[in-house]
């Protein structure tokens, strides 16, 4: 059974911050959903190949030819915080 601590831990893995109230709701709702999907355990799937993709995905080769790409300023235009060349983030290493 999914505990509140489990959900709290998952919220860190998922890079989401949940309020206390959200943690409560999420614990009960995820518990219900996980309980529902556990019906899959009724099936013996030992010898079944997993199907991750509905079509057979093959490697696609193409010639290694230079092609124009979008200019840097276009790509940075949507960034919430950027310098001329870089995305800016809070300092990662300590001071």
């Amino acid at each position: 059974m999914l505990s509140r601590q489990d959900v709290n831990k998952v919220s860190l893995l998922a890079r989401l911050q949940l309020t206390e109230a959200e943690l409560d709701t999420m614990t009960s709702q995820l518990g219900q959903i996980v309980g529902y999907v556990e019906q899959l355990n009724e099936l013996d799937t030992k010898s079944v190949e997993p199907l991750s993709h509905p079509v057979d995905v093959k490697n696609v080769f193409r010639d290694d030819v230079l092609q124009p790409s979008l200019p840097r300023e276009t790509m940075l235009a949507n960034a919430p915080h950027a310098s001329d060349e870089f995305y800016l983030v809070p300092a990662v290493l300590g001071d």
């Binding site: 999907v37 899959l40 355990n41 099936l43 799937t45 079944v48 190949e49 997993p50 199907l51 991750s52």
Partner: peptide, 9 residues
Amino acid sequence: LKALKVRRL
């Protein structure tokens, strides 16, 4: 993984 197997079925 379990889900992907049942997906095959």
